[in-house]
Amino acid sequence: MAPMTEVEGRRVALSNLDKVLYPAAGLTKGELLHYYATTAEVLLPHLRDRAVSFLRYPDGPDGQVFFTKNVPPGTPDWVTTAEVPRSEGPARMVLVQDLASLMWAANLVTEFHTHQWTVDDPGEADRLVFDLDPGPPATVVQCCEVALWLRERLAADGIEAYAKTSGAKGLHLLAGVRGASSERVSEYAKGLAVEAERALPELVVHRMTRSLRPGKVFVDWSQNAARKTTAAPYTVRARGVPAVSTPVTWEEVAGCGRAERFVFLTPDVGRRVRDHGDLLAPLFDRRRAAALP
């Protein structure tokens, strides 16, 4: 039976703490849980009130990897859940609202993925997202070029963008929006992706077609759809190394000359948070959320 730990008055089972999840880095499950506990202050606001999809990898990234959207069997009754709309009918999903539920979920060994809306108003998106995905031999360096163009274009419409690494190969751009459905935000984002391809034809593609993508950056606008989820800020990814989806400054984006500069592992994030705080914190200021043109 897994040992029980008390977290903010809740009893949480934490299991297999010595299990090595990332052999290349020697990172154990206990160290992964420690990362989430010490990053909770900046991570939790990005999860709170959002239905969470879990991309689970209990035996490490080289083992079985699978998505869990419905409330997992054995979920403690004190973990908050909510009924959310889906095209195939409503479903009940987990909300990670506090440190105890974060540690319970992290013990499942998961990436955290969220929608661009909150459960109190699923009909209105409060986030706009672009997932910039490089097709080899393009890298995150080319993603940074595209991100700078998109930042200026969004600013022209009064929308302030923020950047984070995907924790994989690319870059995510986020912005706070208001007063629009996911369908409307998707329509707007697609329009900007098409504009980016026209402006940077040698660098950008807005369609997912694999044959179009080598050497270019796919500007994925489709994650604004109500059913889609995106890797949350500060989540550790199920990759060969424990890379984290990490907020970055625009100065870093502008100065990105080498792809390896944009790989941040779990030990790096604590230092960055101490230096910068949460670079995405302005997203929580509703006064800065923009109406789409």
Rank of each mutant, 00 (worst) to 15 (best):
residue 116 Q to P: 09
residue 275 D to V: 06
residue 228 K to R: 15
residue 262 F to H: 14
residue 167 G to F: 01
residue 290 A to S: 13
residue 27 L to D: 03
residue 83 E to G: 01
residue 273 V to C: 13
residue 289 A to M: 02
residue 68 T to E: 14
residue 84 V to Y: 05
residue 83 E to P: 00
residue 216 K to T: 10
residue 281 A to I: 00
residue 97 Q to G: 09
residue 136 P to E: 13
residue 281 A to L: 11
residue 50 R to P: 05
residue 84 V to E: 02
residue 176 G to Y: 06
residue 120 D to E: 15
residue 142 Q to D: 14
residue 193 A to C: 05
residue 276 H to N: 12
residue 5 T to M: 13
residue 5 T to V: 15
residue 282 P to D: 03
residue 184 R to N: 06
residue 85 P to N: 03
residue 237 R to T: 06
residue 93 M to L: 03
residue 259 A to Y: 08
residue 139 T to S: 15
residue 84 V to N: 03
residue 227 R to P: 00
residue 49 D to R: 14
residue 109 V to Y: 04
residue 111 E to Q: 11
residue 68 T to Q: 12
residue 65 V to M: 02
residue 283 L to I: 05
residue 53 S to A: 13
residue 178 R to G: 00
residue 112 F to H: 05
residue 200 L to S: 10
residue 89 G to Y: 05
residue 10 R to T: 06
residue 264 F to S: 03
residue 120 D to S: 11
residue 194 V to I: 15
residue 268 D to A: 13
residue 62 D to K: 04
residue 278 D to E: 07
residue 156 A to C: 04
residue 214 P to C: 08
residue 269 V to P: 11
residue 44 L to H: 10
residue 39 T to W: 03
residue 191 G to L: 06
residue 37 A to E: 15
residue 164 K to I: 11
residue 267 P to R: 01
residue 244 V to H: 01
residue 242 P to S: 06
residue 85 P to R: 05
residue 54 F to A: 00
residue 241 V to H: 08
residue 279 L to A: 12
residue 129 V to I: 14
residue 230 T to R: 00
residue 106 A to K: 00
residue 193 A to N: 06
residue 228 K to C: 11
